[in-house]
Simulated assay, not measured.
Amino acid sequence: MTIELHVADAPTAEDREAVLAPLRLYNEAMAGPARTEPVAILLRDADGHTIGGLWGRSGYDWLFVEYLAVPQALRGQRLGSALIAEAERIARARGCCGLWLDTFAFQARGFYEKLGFTVFGTLEDHPRGSRRFFLSKRLDG
């Protein structure tokens, strides 16, 4: 069998799934099913339009917060704290032992630390001249 490298100019959802399939099989053989479930906690205005919120997923006993966004004009009203608190409630209900997320140095590291998250990793020069922080918060200890 001949195998070649191919850089996709416009990768598709099918390409992504083809890459994930053997990884998913291996992971499940080693750690069991991930039981991945999405999490969406939305901020809606009076007209019902989604204007921010929290987006993530739970799997392998942790809830990953992929995005958390509160519009600039609404900051300082504890909406971010409420979003994290609701994510923690969902995580506990799903049997997760913690939450994890990442944030850039110019974003909200201090906010997350005030909520009990701790840094477990740092990526220097992402973007160049700055840092990206990886934080976690255990719920079982």
Rank of each mutant, 00 (worst) to 15 (best):
L5P: 00
Y60K: 13
G129H: 14
L83Y: 04
D125E: 15
T50M: 09
Y60V: 06
E86T: 12
P127D: 08
K137C: 00
F111P: 03
V65M: 05
A69E: 14
P127Q: 07
G59P: 05
T118S: 11
V39L: 11
L54V: 13
L139H: 06
G56R: 15
L42N: 02
G59W: 03
F106V: 04
L79D: 03
R94P: 07
G129S: 13
M30S: 11
V65I: 15
R94G: 11
R78K: 15
R89A: 14
E37I: 00
A34L: 09
Q72V: 00
E37G: 02
Y60I: 03
Q72N: 05
E124A: 13
L23A: 07
V39I: 10
L54E: 07
D125G: 10
F111H: 08
F120P: 10
G59Y: 02
L135N: 14
G76W: 12
E88T: 06
T122V: 13
G121L: 09
L79P: 02
P22F: 06
V7L: 10
Y112K: 08
C97H: 15
A91D: 05
Q72T: 00
L101Y: 00
T50H: 01
T36I: 10
E17S: 04
F104Y: 13
L68N: 04
G32P: 05
R24E: 05
D61P: 00
V7K: 01
E17Q: 11
